[in-house]
Design a protein around this nucleic acid. Structure first.
Lengths: 219, 219
DNA sequence: CCTAGCCGTTCAGCTTGCTGTCAGCTAAAG
DNA sequence: CTTTAGCTGACAGCAAGCTGAACGGCTAGG
């Protein structure tokens, strides 16, 4: 993890830099906000550790400007300012955490790890299928031209195929997924839905095996 | 946000529950770990507030079991245990934050908001959505004609959508955010609120997917 | 204490998109 | 070539959803 430490106290700056380097992170140390701006203009960071009292300005204003510009970089505030109102102000300005000096370096490491855990990876694994990205839990599909919406019935059939990649899914298996136990259809409804899936997702998304059923394809 | 508070002290439990309810969250209070397990088996939660000293076990073990089962629900520890080694142990066990009693209720609220933003993947409380500027920390919305006020219910629904851009939020998920454990509605209340959001924020702010739910749009 | 306004909920009538059917065409298999 | 499984455009019905209005409870201000 690449970390920008904005801290004007040389002893504390060095101690924190050494601690996070020993944890395997890549630290850069900026003693002023101007230095910090230079670093940020050059390099993306995974985390910013921000002091509030700096020689060339207030850290809180820096954070506000960062957030106003749309930055999604996590920020932890490390500061001697320990009034509750200042803590709340910092958190509401967009900080992820707020530690009051003097703090324990091992606790700092544990809090950095907690922040990193939250931003690591995607809790929702996406399925990639040709030109499509699919989030099953969120009912979201993204194709080359943006988000694609399926109706409830279309989702059920598409999911049935997605869950059995490479296998043939017969029409009666699909009917079992859609309809209640004793209810049936008397027309070519399944064929119509497959046609609709092809129209929305691409003509190769479903393969037909005549007399047997359907199988997931690659659009 | 649906929040599970695991706290055996009745006075503190009630104070925290009332505070987070006043913020528009939906709290459930479990005085024991057994109660908490029952709640968690019944209902998905967005956040767990966990005391460490409980009558039927140690909160830290509960957290470890939760994480071992693969739970990604954010957990904040609220406890009188204030030794640094215990803080580090809690954070390393998978907690997202650690507050030592007695803590300020407003700071708790600010930290809950920070954890929620982190869980949604973006620590920045400032969001631009089409013609709207939204400050999640201040609960403020600015449109082309100035500030727009939402009622508490309206805000909860809007926030639920904001936290899941691109994803479908079902009506029952919205109900879980609004209503107490055993309370339900028998009419089209959610639809009415969505209609009001559209009236205030623009008709494209919410997209309907019939039979599935709603999704954030761009006004 | 009273009242106006706000908020959450319900209701009813209108709107709209999903679903299933149909018919004619296509394409695969024998 | 024939047969038939499958495909696709079009349409009608119905239920999911939308919105205006009303109601009742609560609260803040006079």
């Amino acid at each position: 993890m690449r970390i920008l430490l904005i801290e004007d106290d040389p002893a504390l700056g060095a101690a924190v830099r050494d601690q996070i380097a020993a944890e395997g992170h890549m630290p850069d140390l900026a003693p002023t906000l101007a230095d910090a701006s230079d670093f940020l203009a050059t390099m993306p960071y995974d985390l910013i550790l921000l002091d509030l009292g700096l020689p060339d300005g207030r850290g809180i204003d820096f954070l506000r400007a960062l957030r106003a510009k749309g930055s999604a970089t996590p920020v932890m505030i490390l500061t001697a300012h320990d009034r509750i109102t200042e803590r709340i102000e910092g958190l509401n300005a967009g900080a992820d955490d707020y530690m009051v000096k003097p703090f324990d370096l091992d606790e700092l490491s544990a809090r950095i790890a907690a922040v990193a855990r939250r931003y690591a990876g995607n809790p929702n694994p996406l399925i990639t299928l040709g030109t499509l990205e699919i989030d099953l839990a969120a009912h979201a599909i993204f194709g080359p031209d943006g988000q694609i919406d399926l109706s409830q019935r279309e989702w059920i059939i598409f999911e049935a195929l997605l869950q059995r990649p490479g296998q043939i899914v017969s029409k009666s298996q699909i009917e079992d997924q859609i309809y209640a136990f004793d209810s049936e259809v008397e027309s070519n409804t399944i064929e119509v839905y497959v046609s609709r899936l092809r129209k929305k997702l691409g003509k190769d998304v479903v393969q037909t095996l005549r007399g047997l059923g359907y199988r997931l394809g690659t659009p």
